[in-house]
Design a protein around this nucleic acid. Structure first.
Lengths: 356, 356
DNA sequence: CTGAAAGCGCTTACAG
DNA sequence: CTGAAAGCGCTTACAG
C-alpha cells in the first residue's frame, strides 16, 4: 500500500495490538480483558469502563483466529462451487448463500472447482477442514458420478454438510428444486395450449438437473398419450451457442414440431433468434418455454415463458439449514434427522407461448 | 450428518488427530513430525518414512488455523463484493478471482455487502483482519462517495489491498476497465456508420462506471462537433426493466434519434424488444450498441453490437497483482510502487449496428 | 539428525 | 469480582 511511504517494510510486521497490550495498559489481567471483550458479566463496572476505554484507545480487536483455535469453532462456512460462469445456477445461488451467511454471522470460505469432475477432492475438503470450517456447503452440480466420493469420504467429515441441486439421498441434507416437476410444468403448459408436437432441447444429460427436466418432459408427454422419440430431442451444453446448434438440428429431425421446451433460458434465447431468422412466428408456428426465470427473459423477443427457480432463495435456504444443524450440534442438541428441502419451481407465462 | 446414526453427538467432539497423536504413535517429538509434514530436510530417512506412515495411518492433516496463528499468515484473501446479483459485473469478476486464487494457492474469505452504501464498513474490515487475511480485494463498485472511507481507514489496514472497478487513485492498486474509452468506442462506431443523432441510456449515474461511459459518449460526440443534450440521455439502473422505461422516455424526448448507446447489455436487450414492438427496424431506423459483452448478447434479436469487458480476466488480474504484493512483502522485498492496471475494452460489431 | 522450551493470541476451568 | 495456570495445535529458535 505504501500510503506512508516513509514506512519501511517493517510496517507489515508492526506489532499487532493483542490482549496483552490491553491488559498491561489497563493494569488488569488478560482474562479480565477477555471478559470485557466478550461482554461477560462479573466484571466491576469501573473495571469494565476502564478496559473498554483502553480497547478503544489502542484499537484492539480480538483475533478470531485465536478464538477459532481455542473454541474449535470458526464461524466460517466452507462453500464449494463449480460453474460460476453458468449464470443460471451456481452464481445466483451464491448470492443467496452470501447474504444469508452474512445475516447469520458466518463468513464464507469459498472454493471454486476448476473442473466439474475433478479427480481428487480430498485436498480440497481437507483444506476446508484444516481451516476449521463449522460446516460445508457443496454447491457443485451433480454430473455423472462426480458425487460418488460421498459414500467413501463422508463418514470422515466431521462437520455438518449440505448439498445443493442434486438427487436426494437418504441421510443427507439436500436443498434442490424439483426439476422433474419443472419439466412437467413446462410440457403440460404446452399441451394445455393445444400443442402435440413438443420437442425438447436438453442441457448436458449427464447433469442431474438436465436429466430431470428431460424426464419431466417425457413423463408429461406420456401422460398425454404421446410417445417421445429420440428425434424430438437435442442436447446442448447450457450455452446460447449450443442452443442455437441444438435447435437447428431439432428443426431438421422434427419438422412437425409446433412447440419446444428448452432446458434453460440462455438456450431458449438462441432458439428464439434462429426462429426469427427463419421466419417462424412465435407462438403461432412454434411455442417456446425456457427454464430458470432469468430476469432478462421477460425482455427477450418475444418475451419468454419460463419455469422460474429462485436460486437466491435456494442458496439462502441451504445456509439456513446448515447453520441450524451446526448450532443444534453445538448446543448439544441431538439434531433431527437430516431434512432435505425441495423447492417447487413456478411457471411464468409470457408471449412465447401465449399471444397477448 | 448422522451418517452413523449409532454415534451420539459426541461424534462432533471426536478427537481431532493432532501433531501430538502422530508424535506419540511414531515415538518421536512433535517437532520431528512438523519437519516431516513440512517437507523439511534434516530428518533421517528412516524416521521420515516411519512418520509418514503414521501420518497416513492416522489420517493426520495439520491445522491451517494453528499454522496461520503462528506464522501470522493465513493464505486467505479477503474478498468484498457487492451486487453479485448484477450479472454483468461483480459476479463474473468473482469467477476470475476464485480461479486465480485457487491457482495461486489462496483461499477466499468472501463477504457480500448488502447495500452499496453501507454506513459502517469498519466491522467488516475488522472481521477480515481478525481472521488474518493476507490481503484484501475490494470488489465493490464505486458509487457516490462510498469509497470515502479510504482516506481515513486505509492507513490502519495492515495488509495489501487491491481495488476493482473504481477511479484511479494515487498510491492504490486499482484494476479496472477504461470505461470512458469504452463509451468513446461505442459512440465512435455509431458515428462511423453515419449516425448523427445518438442517444444514450446510462446506468445509474452515481456509479463511477456509468458516469465514465456517459463521459465517453459525450466526449466522442463533442469530438465530432455534436453537442449532447439532456434530452438525448436517459438513466436506468442496469436492469432490463429500467432499460425499457429509459428507452421509452428517450424515444419521446429525442424523436430524431437514429442510434443509441446503452450502458449495459441487459438494458440494451429491452431496448431491442421495445424497438421491435414499435416496428422500428434495427439497424436501419435505429442502431444499438450495448456494453459488457455478455455471451448471450450474440443471440439477442438482432444480435447486439457491444463493448466487451472480460470481467473474468479483471478478477484474475486483481488477484495476481494482490498476491504479488503480498509475497513481495513477505519475502522482505520492498514492493514497487502500487501498480494499477487498466484494461482496454473491445468493440464487437454485430447486426444491431451493421446489416450483414 | 532430534528434542525441550517458548510462544502465536486467545479462552477455559479453577482458585481466591 | 479478579488473576495464575494450562492449553487450543502448531512452529521457531536454540541446544545437543
Amino acid at each position: 500500500m505504501m500510503i506512508t511511504i516513509t514506512g519501511t517494510i517493517t510496517m507489515r510486521h508492526q506489532h499487532r495490538i493483542t490482549i496483552k497490550d490491553v491488559a498491561k495498559t489497563a493494569g488488569v489481567s488478560t482474562q479480565t480483558v477477555s471478559r470485557v471483550a466478550n461482554d461477560r458479566p462479573d466484571v466491576a463496572v469501573a473495571t469494565r469502563k476502564r478496559v473498554l476505554q483502553v480497547i478503544e484507545a489502542l484499537g484492539y480487536r480480538p483475533s478470531e483466529l485465536a478464538r477459532s483455535l481455542i473454541q474449535q469453532r470458526s464461524y466460517m462456512l466452507g462453500v464449494v462451487t463449480a460453474g460460476l460462469k453458468y449464470m443460471g445456477g451456481p452464481a445466483r445461488a451464491l448470492n443467496g448463500i452470501a447474504s444469508q451467511a452474512e445475516e447469520l454471522g458466518y463468513a464464507i470460505l469459498l472454493k471454486e472447482l476448476s473442473h466439474f469432475n475433478t479427480g481428487d477432492l480430498q485436498p480440497l475438503l481437507e483444506s476446508l477442514l484444516s481451516r476449521q470450517v463449522d460446516g460445508i456447503l457443496w454447491a457443485v452440480p451433480e454430473i455423472g458420478d462426480n458425487h460418488c466420493w460421498l459414500e467413501e469420504w463422508l463418514p470422515g467429515i466431521t462437520v455438518p454438510m449440505a448439498f445443493l441441486s442434486m438427487a436426494l439421498r437418504p441421510n443427507l441434507v439436500v436443498i434442490a428444486f424439483d426439476n422433474l416437476a419443472g419439466g412437467r410444468l413446462a410440457t403440460q403448459h404446452l399441451l394445455s395450449i393445444g400443442r402435440r408436437y413438443i420437442g425438447h432441447i436438453a442441457g448436458p444429460l449427464d447433469w442431474w438437473e438436465a436429466s430431470q427436466r428431460k424426464l419431466g418432459w417425457e413423463s408429461a408427454l406420456q401422460d398425454a398419450g404421446i410417445q417421445p422419440k429420440a428425434s424430438h430431442l437435442a442436447e446442448g451444453n447450457w450455452s446460447s451457442a449450443s442452443g442455437e446448434a441444438a435447435f437447428s438440428r431439432l428443426l431438421d429431425t422434427y419438422p412437425e414440431m409446433d412447440a419446444v421446451f428448452v432446458a434453460n433460458d440462455q438456450m431458449a434465447l438462441s432458439a428464439l433468434q434462429v426462429a426469427c431468422r427463419r421466419g417462424l412466428r412465435i407462438p403461432e408456428d412454434l411455442a417456446v418455454v425456457g427454464f430458470d426465470g432469468l430476469a432478462e427473459s421477460a425482455y427477450f423477443w418475444p418475451s419468454l415463458t419460463t419455469v422460474c427457480q429462485d436460486q437466491h432463495q435456494l442458496g439462502s435456504q441451504a445456509v439456513f439449514s446448515l447453520v441450524n444443524r451446526i448450532e443444534a450440534l453445538n448446543d448439544g442438541i441431538i439434531p433431527p434427522d437430516p431434512l432435505s428441502v425441495i423447492l417447487a419451481p413456478e411457471l411464468i407465462i409470457r408471449e412465447s407461448t401465449v399471444k397477448v
